[in-house]
Amino acid sequence: MIYNLFIFSKDNKCLYYYEWNRPLKADSLDYEKENLSGLLIAICDFVSKISPIKPSFFKSYSTSSYKLHYYESLSGFRMAILTDPTTGDLTDSLEYIYGELFTNYVMKNPLYEIGQEIKSQKFIYELDLYISKLPFFK
């Protein structure tokens, strides 16, 4: 099951948040966004540093009740999706969301300026359509 999704900009601003299933509501969403962004930066930095073989990239972590999938673009946009812990690898889906939906309907939208929150209806619509069609959505 897919719970929710965050998109962060390079400078740690949360550009987009959406929740599909979330029984336990956040106490403060702003606090949660800010902390998650900080946590992800720290994890990415740390996992790479302690890697015994060669630099490695953070992909996901899981707890007893959820799993966080992470994707970072080369230009510094970062995405996190929370799902139930049994969900497999989501790298392909995250790459699709970034490569097809985000670049086309956000970056190429003439009305979007870099750094703004994402409000484009087309993006929100296409994202919702894509996520709700994934086999492990429910």
Partner: peptide
């Protein structure tokens, strides 16, 4: 094709 207004 890529133009989209903010969702109301």
């Amino acid at each position: 094709r890529n133009l989209s207004f903010p969702f109301d």
